[in-house]
Design a protein around this nucleic acid. Structure first.
Length: 580
DNA sequence: AGTGAGAGCCAC
DNA sequence: AAACGTGGCTCTCACT
């Protein structure tokens, strides 16, 4: 070793790397951390790789020892690699050194899983170390320049970061065991490589098509704005110059409310639901303006800016444990909220010679409700392959299955979904356009047909109020705060009713993330988007059939591992464009 | 100039 | 309280 101090060994040559590998061979756990010259492997390189065991800490200068192959066996198998936000480390090592870290223990995800959705303000290594092992870290070197000659302070910092992971692991692993969170944490850890690769792969936006859409939407927006403004003539008597500037900001709810008052219309707010009830052409114009402005501002004008100049693709950021129910969240940009219309989704395309495989779970949340409630009619419908919305409509309206009208099925569908979210009579009747009495009647009717669904929802809400804690089928924990104000009781009960359903769907989706990667290994196919119950895979044209079946198989396997009584179905489409 | 709350709306 | 759960993003507006 070139340099040796009490705290760490600094490694710079291939020969030394081989020695490190030998030393680490028998280790059970290794604290692993990287220092990089940028936050994305597209923009920066790995400078340091730190590996810590209880006995010693190695700091590898990756600028000097670029070839990490002596460590491959250690990094891709054997000891558990403990890291903080391993998605980051996985991406750098995968993209720049062809190393796929495994098996994993992520201290950030562990802390989040333990907190059960009652999230702390920060899950930085510094914060988690302070909370769990009462150790305060000096992070002043974190954003220092890692590309030049390294100072003693930088190396000491790097070594400390890797070492603290070991004590954190010990403490967090004990908590996971105590709280019976081993299964769910294992799912989270094993899903990391899939999510890391999904971000690296990115998604292709057909910019020409997108810009074309942008132009037409802008024209439509401008026309809607003109029409809207024509209802609000400028006050008389203004001097010519004063009338020139923009006088009414159409994006300001406050100014819109004031403007409508001049028409004799008092708006409580300017939400869609409110405006729909206003029988005035200005309200229609505003609704149209709003829709187009949203599409322009949020999507059309913004998304091209997210395209990486290095890859020509959009690399979104998926947040693995931010949502209490276990769903992924997505930012910068959120590619889980692209408008569903064809004109938007058809702009997301496969590369030349490739195609998209779009696979989604069929009614997964309703299947989960059937499973957890054990309602015989509900379970039976899925087992027989009967359309649940039609069945619900038939029983609620007292007609036979083939007499159910479209309107009745739509109403039944809304009830099926609404009640999963703890929806009440008033809001249901509002959506259905009936009075509250009729809404009450429909709900009573519904629960008379599916008594165990009602019992499940009530019991779940009661248990949450009593125990302040709930679990999903795979064991994900949700802790509820201790002091709900009286006003929040309803909200908490609704959240509680929804958690086991949305949460189990997330359990299944995360398990599927693991299986999809296993199935597609070595196939020239990669996951490029995950929208809760839908996966988008991009693959070589000639692989489409195989990839479709393997993706479906992975998703069904995940579903059936969690659901025992109810079958799971996955629908798969193949298209060059992202659409159904 | 940056920040944060509020309003509103996109997805599942 | 349009009381339907989970998010993220854009815009306004008031504040520092």
């Amino acid at each position: 070793m070139e340099e040796r101090t009490q705290d760490y060994r600094f490694v710079t040559t291939a020969e030394d790397l081989a020695g490190v590998a030998k030393t680490l061979q028998g280790a059970e756990v290794i604290g692993l951390d990287l220092e990089t010259t940028a936050l994305s492997p597209r923009d920066g390189r790995v400078r340091l790789l730190q590996l810590a065991t209880l006995e010693e800490t190695f700091i590898v200068d990756v600028f000097e020892a670029v070839d990490l192959s002596p460590l491959t066996e250690i990094l891709e198998g054997g000891p558990v690699k403990v890291g903080h936000n391993l998605k980051f480390d996985h991406q750098f090592l995968d993209a720049l050194h062809s190393v796929s870290l495994s098996p994993l223990f992520d201290t950030m995800l562990a802390a989040q899983v333990i907190d059960g959705g009652n999230y702390a303000a920060s899950y930085s290594l510094e914060s988690v170390a302070e909370r769990y092992v009462d150790e305060s870290l000096d992070k002043s070197e974190q954003r220092s320049d890692w590309s030049g000659k390294l100072s003693e302070a930088q190396l000491a910092y790097a070594a400390q970061d890797a070492r603290v992971l070991l004590s954190l692991h010990e403490r967090l692993a004990a908590s996971l065991e105590e709280e019976e969170l081993e299964r769910i944490s294992r799912i989270e850890f094993e899903a990391i490589p899939t999510i890391a690769r999904m971000e690296l792969a990115g998604i292709k936006l057909d910019v020409a098509r997108w810009k074309e859409l942008e132009v037409t939407v802008r024209e439509r927006r401008d026309r809607a704005a003109e029409r809207l403004e024509s209802f609000f003539p400028p006050p008389e008597g203004v001097l010519p110059l004063e009338g020139l500037g923009p006088r009414l900001n159409l994006n300001s709810p406050k100014q819109i409310t004031d403007a409508f008052r001049t028409l004799g219309i008092d708006l409580s707010d300017t939400k869609v639901w409110t405006l729909l009830k206003v029988d005035h052409p200005a309200a229609k114009a505003l609704l149209e303006y709003r829709e187009l402005q949203k599409k322009l501002g949020t999507y059309l004008e913004t998304y091209p800016g997210f395209i990486s100049p290095k890859t020509g693709r959009i690399h979104a950021n998926f947040l693995q444990c931010r949502v209490p129910t276990g769903r992924l969240a997505c930012t910068a940009p959120n590619i889980q909220q692209i408008p569903h219309e064809d004109e938007f989704r058809r702009c997301f395309v496969a590369e030349d010679g490739n195609t998209l495989v779009i696979a989604d779970y069929s009614q997964i949340e309703l299947r989960i409700l059937a499973e957890v409630s054990e309602d015989p009619a509900f379970v039976g419908a899925f087992q027989r392959g009967v359309d649940l919305h039609s069945l619900t409509a038939a029983t609620m309206y007292n007609v036979s299955m083939d007499e159910v009208t479209k309107v009745q099925r739509t109403a039944a569908k809304r009830i099926n979904f609404g009640l999963m979210y703890g929806r009440g009579a008033r809001s249901l009747s509002a959506q259905l356009g009936t009075d509250e009495e009729r809404g009450r009647q429909l709900i009573d009717e519904y629960f008379a047909n599916y008594p165990k669904v009602q019992r499940f929802l009530q019991r779940t809400a009661n248990r949450a109020m009593r125990d302040r804690t709930l679990r999903t089928l795979a064991g994900r924990l949700r802790k509820f705060g201790n002091d709900p104000v009286a006003d929040d009781r309803g909200a908490m009960r609704r959240e509680a009713m929804n958690f086991p359903i949305q949460g189990a769907a997330s359990d299944i989706a995360k398990l599927a993330l693991i299986y999809v990667r296993e199935e597609l290994e070595g196939l020239d196919a990669r996951l490029i988007n995950s929208i809760h119950d839908e996966f988008v895979v991009e693959c070589a044209d000639e692989r489409a059939g195989e990839v479709s079946e393997k993706t479906r198989a992975a998703m069904v396997r995940a579903g059936e591992e969690i659901l025992e009584k109810v079958p799971v179905e996955v629908e798969v489409e193949v298209s060059r464009e992202w659409r159904k």
